[in-house]
Amino acid sequence: MTLTLRSTILSDPGLVRSNNEDAGIAGDRLLAVADGMGGLPAGEVASEIVIGILAEVAPPAAPEAAQAMLRAAISTANNQIRAAIGADPERDGMGTTVTAAILAGAELVLAQVGDSRCYLLRDGRLRQLTRDDTFVQELVDQGILTPEQARRHPQRSLVTRAVQGHDAPPAIAVLTLAAGDRLLLCSDGLSDYVDDTAIATTLSGYPDRQQCAEQLVKLAHQAGAPDNVTVALADVDGSGDDETTQTVVTPGG
């Protein structure tokens, strides 16, 4: 069976910020979300760099090649961000998260730096496939905080790793997908303010991808939406139909 992704992406500045530093891609074999680091200069430049690099590559069909491609793309992004900082020292400190997924055959290859997440909905059950690179996640891992306490912690958005112009190899994961699976990649503008139960209910309750994405953003708005919100949503299809599509969202949109 040939699998493909039927995907959509929606990015919203939220209700507080005047600009949107998020960027992303939704294609038939590639999904990615990048969140320019809030509070640091030129975060939108950093997120656009990494998404621009990913948008130019042809996703490999073999999982091992997909892993190598994602590592290389993130390394190139670090080099370009370092060069951008060198050309304009006022950009020193800019960076971005990135979570990217390639469908290689029946395998999903995930690469992550930062706290943009990937979720899998299968048979009505939601599973977080990525681990946040954040200060509060380290406290959860140590048993100091519960996941619920981490959600309310004032430093929940403090990332410990980002694509900032220095070596930051991504965490890589590979898992087997099946037709009927639903994937969600999102920036922390969703996951910090909408809990997993509400996300699962929405992913299960809205078969139409665009309506589902709009509802997820609506939930972020209802929670105050103090941050940019980006959701890339894909259904895993086993029909084998060939359909080459790709939507790229750049910062400011």
Score class of each variant (00 low, 15 high):
Ile102Gly: 05
Arg127Val: 09
Ser11Gly: 13
Gln80Ala: 11
Asp141Ala: 12
Gly24Pro: 11
Leu3Asp: 13
Ala101Gln: 04
Gln210Ala: 10
Val229Tyr: 00
Gln80His: 06
Thr201Trp: 02
Ile51Glu: 03
Ser191Trp: 11
Arg131Ile: 11
Leu31Ser: 11
Leu30Glu: 09
Leu129Pro: 14
Gln67Pro: 11
Gly24His: 05
Glu21Lys: 04
Ala32Asp: 04
Gly252Leu: 02
Asn228Lys: 02
Asp242Thr: 14
Asp22Tyr: 07
Asp35Lys: 01
Pro89Asn: 06
Ile144His: 05
Pro226Asn: 04
Val45Phe: 14
Arg29Glu: 13
Ala87Gln: 14
Thr8Glu: 14
Ser204Gln: 15
Ala225Arg: 00
Gln210Phe: 13
Val136Ile: 05
Met37Asp: 01
Met37Pro: 00
Asp167Thr: 09
Asp227Ser: 04
Thr176His: 11
Val16Glu: 07
Leu15His: 04
Arg17His: 13
Ile172Ser: 03
Ala111His: 07
Met37Glu: 04
Val174Pro: 00
Ile172Asp: 03
Ile51Val: 15
Glu243Ala: 12
Arg151Trp: 00
Asp88Gln: 11
Arg125Thr: 12
Ala162Pro: 07
Gly95Phe: 00
Cys118Leu: 15
Ser239Glu: 12
Ser7Phe: 08
Val136Gln: 03
Asp241Val: 15
Pro154Ile: 03
Asn19Cys: 07
Pro226Val: 03
Gly238Phe: 01
Val98Trp: 03
Thr8Arg: 12
Gln222Met: 08
Pro13Glu: 06
Arg117Ile: 09
Ser11Ala: 13
Leu139Trp: 05
Ile85Lys: 02
Ala173Cys: 00
Arg209Gln: 10
Ile102Cys: 08
Pro251Gly: 06
Leu184Tyr: 11
Ile144Asp: 03
Ala42Met: 04
Gly224Met: 05
Val136Gly: 01
Glu148Thr: 12
Leu129Asp: 10
Ile199Arg: 08
Pro207Gly: 06
Gly27Tyr: 07
Thr202His: 02
Ala77Asn: 06
Ser11Asp: 11
Arg122Met: 08
Glu64Ile: 13
Asp208Thr: 01
Asp196Phe: 01
Gly189Thr: 05
Asp133Gly: 08
Ile9Gly: 12
Leu219Tyr: 10
Asp181Trp: 04
Val194Trp: 13
His153Asn: 10
Ser239Leu: 06
Ile9Val: 15
Thr197Tyr: 02
Pro169Ala: 04
Gly52Asn: 13
Tyr119Gln: 08
Gly205Met: 02
Asp35Thr: 02
Ser18Arg: 10
Gln80Gly: 00
